[in-house]
Computed example of a mutant assay.
Amino acid sequence: MSLLLLCGAGLALNTYLWKRRAEQAVPPRGSFTRISTGRLHYLDVGAGPEILLIHGLGGQMGNFDCGLIDNLARDHRVIAIDRPGMGYSERPLTQPCAPDDTAALMFEIMDKLDIKAPLVVGHSLGGAIALAMAVQNAERLRGLALLAPLTLRAGRPAPVFDGMKIRSDFLRWLAAWTVATPAALRQASAVIDQVYGPEEMPPNAPIQGGAMLTLRPSHFYHSSRDYMQSGDGLEEMSRKYAGLTVPVRLLYGTEDRILDPQIHGAKLVGRHPQMGLKLVPGGHMLPLTQPVVCAEFIRDASEKMRGSLTIKRASPEVYR
């Protein structure tokens, strides 16, 4: 028993040292305010039509900050956030975090930061959150421009997330402070290959892209909870897509290894042809690997969605 406790203490100390190392390498880059879940870390730059950036599972605002934010901020007000629980934003340990729950927090953030009628850009799980926002209150949004989004409750989850399948909050917390960080370091090459492949991880991804923050125990804990609740309500939500009153456009990499573009892109648009889909060669992490392509896609969407806040039936050019 004493040996087990000693091993646990050693693992916890190792995790703490890596946590400190990650935080020193990637300090907060934005400002802080408070919302119902606690402290919120956000970046607010530029002027013009508003764009709200929502990152995906296990990410943080750095996922957009390897060229994309600076590009868009030339002619837009760009607001990037660490979603509650991720990066440097706080979230209670038992806070519900299904896409619908997080969407409600996004509206709270909009109120707090005085964001009116934004184009919402969601990457991966952030895409499901953006769609949930549109389902909840379309009148407050200008449109959606989604990057490799989770859209339907379909397809097998990528094996890279198997280690996050933990149902108990206590076991999740225990894993976060003991085995999660060593496992992340040991499996880094395989994870990078699946998340970024077939493209290479950009050299600025660990620091500027914030990837080192994945070594913090809070990151693992909240990512695991996000993963376990990511599909909650998604099937019911997808039944409401046909009635959306904001334009929706999607950008997908044809060789995405995390989410299947045929399911979450082509199948979705096949059901709802009023939506627009653009396919490009590449993988899942388009905001990091192809920031110029993403900026052009978002800027084009912003220009075409500059008109009225809601629509009964948009003309094709609004979507495509």
Rank of each mutant, 00 (worst) to 15 (best):
G163D: 08
G87Y: 00
R249W: 08
G210D: 05
Y252K: 06
P202Q: 08
E235L: 14
Q187T: 12
L251W: 00
M285C: 10
L152D: 02
T15K: 02
G253S: 10
L93N: 05
V26H: 01
G155I: 06
G197P: 05
D101M: 08
I192Y: 03
T15G: 07
Q187L: 15
G283V: 05
R186L: 14
G270Y: 10
L11C: 13
M164T: 00
P217Y: 01
Y196L: 05
A134D: 04
R299H: 15
Y16E: 15
R271Y: 09
F297V: 05
S315Q: 14
L244F: 06
S223Q: 11
I192L: 08
I207S: 03
L53Y: 06
A145R: 00
A117P: 01
D226K: 11
E108M: 02
L5W: 12
G210I: 00
E296N: 13
G48Q: 10
L268E: 02
S36F: 08
A184R: 05
D111N: 15
L5Y: 12
K304G: 07
K267Q: 15
M228C: 13
F64K: 03
P261G: 11
P291I: 04
S238D: 15
H272C: 12
S2K: 11
P49I: 07
L279F: 13
A266G: 11
R271K: 15
P27T: 06
Q262H: 13
K304S: 12
E50K: 09
N137K: 10
R299P: 02
S31G: 08
G30V: 01
G67Q: 10
H264R: 04
G163Q: 07
D193Q: 14
P27W: 02
A176N: 04
H55I: 06
I311Q: 09
T37R: 04
R140L: 07
Q194I: 14
I207V: 15
P273C: 09
D256N: 15
L13I: 07
L185W: 10
Q187Y: 12
T178Q: 03
P281W: 08
S189V: 14
D114R: 14
R91W: 04
L268H: 05
D65S: 09
L68C: 10
L152Y: 02
A117V: 08
H55F: 06
I79C: 04
L286K: 03
L215Y: 03
P118E: 00
A190C: 09
G46D: 04
E108I: 01
A128T: 04
I79G: 00
L105M: 13
P203A: 13
R216M: 09
D70F: 02
L309K: 07
